[in-house]
């Protein structure tokens, strides 16, 4: 049985005086224990909303969550807020993009970590302090005992993100969701954090959902990759498969449009036309059709359904042919 099974997850936002907005539109995927699954996409593709829906962190008013999120067989969407609160921190951990705003600025790092330990693992304060120092050490924060007394603003961005990861790991969750955990960080710091996450997955067997816009991050870290566009998964494959032969024109286009460090200079990029806002509703065809170089008439008339071939899921009427490689 999968550790986490998300099926047909749909999130609709309603604001007074506005048309309802479907941010996530029937997303399904599963995470096995110890597996790293990537959710990739650009702004507005619904990747972050998906993670918030899994964690039960969307506002009750204004957001309607439908579908099913099963964690070890338990339906999370039907849990009460209190039960969900217990789950979070104990079974599910989350790391956010902005480590500064995710930490309480007026409470010391030590207290923020021990709070989690006391609440979820029922540890006495003294023991929790020892454990907290241990956790900070494990995530690579130098001189952890002293850091316990410090406040978030006294740490650098990278150290804050480490502290946040330590908090997420305090209760040894079986699933960790990392939402753009390195986007606010420098490349050299990003490399440290990614190495740390990979190590944690390897050593503790925690499953990881990695949410990012950076295909490079996905390539090095994830076992399986879901590419999202306008609230739906458009392509899913094992990472080597996906990067070697991207079949969806969007995935293909993304890979062709990013400058690669290892590509010879002067080669022209092939951009995707238009912007993320230029889409059509999924009920009227393929949301990507207006920007798609391979769009057919059918693409603006018939909603493409998810098809499977050779372990790969694909939602496209006119996929990129197998022999068309990404221009390297």
């Amino acid at each position: 049985m999968a550790l986490l099974e998300v099926s047909d997850l749909t999130v609709v936002f309603r604001r007074r005086g506005e048309a309802p907005f479907t941010a996530v539109d029937g997303v399904s995927f599963a995470v096995e224990p110890g597996q790293t699954v990537g959710l990739v996409g650009e702004s507005g593709c619904g990747k972050s909303v998906t993670s918030l829906a899994i964690m039960g962190l969307l506002p009750r008013r204004g957001a309607t969550v439908m579908g099913s999120v099963r964690f070890e067989g338990t339906e999370l969407l039907s849990l009460s807020p209190r039960q969900m609160r217990d789950r979070r921190g104990r079974d599910l951990g989350m790391v956010f993009q902005d480590p500064l705003s995710s930490l309480n600025p007026v409470v010391s790092i030590g207290l923020q970590v021990t709070e989690v330990l006391e609440r979820h693992r029922g540890m006495p304060r003294r023991q929790a302090m020892v454990e907290a120092a241990d956790l900070l050490d494990k995530v690579g924060i130098p001189d952890p005992r002293r850091r316990l007394d410090e406040y978030p603003h006294q740490l650098s961005g990278g150290m804050r993100q480490r502290a946040l990861i330590a908090m997420a790991l305090a209760c040894r969750p079986r699933l960790l969701i990392a939402d753009e955990p390195t986007t606010a960080l420098d490349v050299t710091i990003q490399a440290q954090i990614l190495a740390l996450l990979a190590e944690l997955v390897r050593d503790t067997g925690t499953a990881l959902i990695m949410i990012t816009h950076d295909l490079g991050v996905v390539a090095g870290l994830c076992d399986e990759v879901n590419v999202l566009y306008a609230g739906r998964v458009v392509e899913r494959a094992e990472r080597h498969e996906l990067f070697r032969r991207p079949r969806h024109p969007y995935t293909h286009g993304l890979l062709a449009s990013i400058p690669r460090l290892d590509a010879p200079r002067g080669e022209r990029l092939v951009p995707i036309q238009g912007s993320v806002a230029d889409n059509i509703p999924w009920d009227h065809g393929c949301a990507f059709a207006p920007r798609c170089p391979r769009a057919l008439e059918a693409c603006v008339e018939i909603t493409p359904h998810m098809g499977e071939e050779g372990g790969r899921l694909l939602r496209c009427h006119n996929p990129v042919q197998e022999n068309q490689e990404v221009p390297a």
Binding site: Q273, A289, P290, A295, N318
Partner: peptide, 22 residues
């Protein structure tokens, strides 16, 4: 490059002139 699913030609042709479509 013909579509596997093609229907009436009532709509303006999609291929060619993406700018107009946008």
């Amino acid at each position: 490059m013909t579509g596997s699913v093609s229907r009436s030609g009532a709509r303006p042709p999609l291929l060619g002139g993406r700018k107009e479509r946008l």
